[in-house]
Write a protein that binds this DNA or RNA. Structure first.
Lengths: 209, 209
DNA sequence: AACCAATTGTTAAAAACTTATCAGGATTGC
DNA sequence: GCAATCCTGATAAGTTTTTAACAATTGGTT
């Protein structure tokens, strides 16, 4: 429970969370690792091992309590609290994210959108103000922002990331098709949407084997 | 060169492709695995090993030709040809994807959008027709569609996927927050956008170690 | 109250993946 | 045209990740 947690494990946590949420919504109260295994197409040993990285949440002969395991994972992921977010870039992706209702519901509160396009500045998107990129640096001095969402063209992404980090942002969710780099005290999640489409094309052509 | 290619390797290919495209755009003609290694923060051995899965593209004492290696990877990924695509769901994500210019440029041609909302049916999004979900099955009989993009609510995703597969679609790019299942002769790429946000939250809270 | 079945947490084994090493061939500079 | 250098492809070693196995513990049942 004290060793370094591998990224592979961390990346499975959201999947557990999703699965447990579904079970909970269906009113299921308890679940065993082997039942989860079937439902999620994961190995049961792996599930027990993964969960055990963070504590012994299960009980022999019984399994896991859906509700409390879900709660534990929310806490481990850190999604049981509120984050202040800014979106940079109000193009296709920026807008789609601004309109996405679940973020607000899950505690990711979008405080402002920034753009360079003077036609957009001053307008509102889903009731969120669009401000000028020129004001970003100043804005970050007065507002306490945790997460910046990068939805800029790739040429601007790293520069904007640097401004965000300098302004105290510690998490960057990057949708620009470039690997943004951040210092060790911050973290970036590079999305690279089209990579998935390329992988899809690969398997469509070659098959899975 | 004949063994099974691991998914880990396949998922690095788009990254190589992106990097080589950038080099090519800068006019760089040749590159060694160790130079790539520095530029991409990957191990040089790994790069040589990865590329060697598909053929001996390099030359001792010289390295790799940027242009031809890029071309090879495009071919391996299968992104050097055209795909016919439909988008299911014209909500935030569906619209954003419909407007995304690069898809068309890269040969992913969006032929139609389907939705259940009668207010949207008959309209056009970025000059692409929005058709009724009821007509999807018939549509697939006459049109040869390769890829279906799922941008529906999660409750509808699996059902729509089934219709798509039945209609001859072999690739599904799924943005609904559920793991869509497809038969062995088809392939699905589940995106799960918010998973990345959760992982980001995890590392913001716990740090990387 | 005692047994049986279920299920975890843990340890061990297997598989997959990454990194290091190096012989051999190609290129470049002189 | 020769030597020194560079760099790949291949093999070997090391590391991480996944899967299997099982003792120990709990809950339900008779």
């Amino acid at each position: 429970m004290d060793e370094k947690i591998s990224e592979a494990v961390v990346r499975r946590l959201p999947k557990y969370y999703r699965y447990l949420s579904d079970l909970d919504a269906l009113g299921v109260e308890r679940i065993s690792s082997s039942a989860m295994s079937k439902g999620m197409s994961l190995n049961a040993s792996q599930i027990r091992r993964d969960l055990n990285c963070f504590g012994g949440f299960g009980q022999q002969g019984y399994g896991y309590s859906v509700k409390s395991l879900k709660q534990e994972i929310m806490h481990i992921l850190g999604i049981d609290k509120a984050y202040h977010v800014v979106i940079i870039g109000s193009g296709n992706i920026g807008q789609a994210l601004a309109f996405y209702k679940n973020f607000a519901l899950e505690g990711y509160i979008i405080k402002a959108i920034f753009d360079v396009d003077s036609n957009r500045i001053g307008k509102k998107i889903n009731n969120i103000e669009v401000l000028s990129m020129n004001d970003l640096e100043t804005y970050l001095k007065t507002e306490n922002i945790h997460i910046g969402i990068l939805a800029t063209p790739k040429g601007a992404a790293q520069d904007v990331a640097d401004i965000l980090i300098k302004g105290g942002v510690t998490g960057i969710w990057n949708f620009a098709p470039i690997d943004v780099k951040v210092p060790d005290n911050a973290y970036v999640e590079n999305v690279h949407l089209s990579d998935g489409l390329y992988v899809l094309s690969y398997y469509m052509q070659r098959g899975r084997f």
